[in-house]
Amino acid sequence: MSNNQEREVLLSCRDLKVSFPKGKEKFYAVKGATFDIYKGETFAIVGESGSGKTTIGRAIIRINDSEGDVIFKGKKINGKLTKAEDREVIKSIQMIFQDPATSLNERANVDYIISEGLYNFHLYKDEEDRKKKVVDSLKSVGLLQEHASRYPHEFSGGQRQRIGIARAMVMEPELIIADEPISALDVSIRAQVLNLLKKLQEEKGLTYLFIAHDLSVVRFFSDRIAVIHLGEIVELASSEELFLNPLHPYTKSLLSAVPMPDPEVEKNKKLITYDGSCHDYSVDKPKWVEIKEGHFVRGNDAEIAMYKKQIENK
């Protein structure tokens, strides 16, 4: 992706920090994340449990308060907004949740669940128009018109997740934050949901922020990947670049853990264990450096020099 400079930035985070109260102190779950998401791409954040990847997603959709800047289409959206701006941002950024078992209101029928956003902003001309929008959105995720009168408990996990997708899509957003949308699903229907997301992206020109921990899925699904560890983004590159030239030791250990469907390879595979103490940041502080075009890595001067050598030797 050499033309990054020319592409339109849809969302950019600058030194994004999210903290939670821990007694009288603050605990930072995200310690300064800086990245851009370009229009029409799929940007993935991967990391282990508790690394802060979901928190970044929730900060962007403003469920969690954040410090630093979240800039959407040139406007800062975290912090106080006017009512009209707030409306605009809610309509433009939508979220797909991890667990379809808990993310739907069990006491509301599908018609209400999908229409909820439409009701809130009165995004329909009349009752007929609303019904049409609900049916269109049901059909776009492969569900039937008759499902509108049903309740969530009557659906399978995959169907429920598609209801969640329809609920986000009916708002006609520009950016969708997909928070591990397939982690809670059966393996047999993961591909179905991923293909649906891809199809909708092509049809509507959507931009995805895809939060995941499964690298094999992320490689297939996303254009660029950010690796996050303990609240810090350690490496950011296009998917192929990251898989070909992983630089940060944490990225290397993550990639080494991806299972290969080949017994020979698996037997001889050497797992790389990541230990944070391999960095000596006591004097030489780490920085966020663009080491190659579009390939960012976090490291101090000594490490950057080493990473540069690695790239040249390839």
Binding site: I61, I63, D86, R87, I90, K91, Q94, M95, F97, Q98, D99, T102, S103, L104, N105, E106, E116, G117, N120, F121, G164, R167, M171
Partner: peptide, 10 residues
């Protein structure tokens, strides 16, 4: 979580 979803929908 569905309450979070409702908040995201405004």
């Amino acid at each position: 979580e569905y309450n979070l979803a409702s908040r995201c929908l405004g």
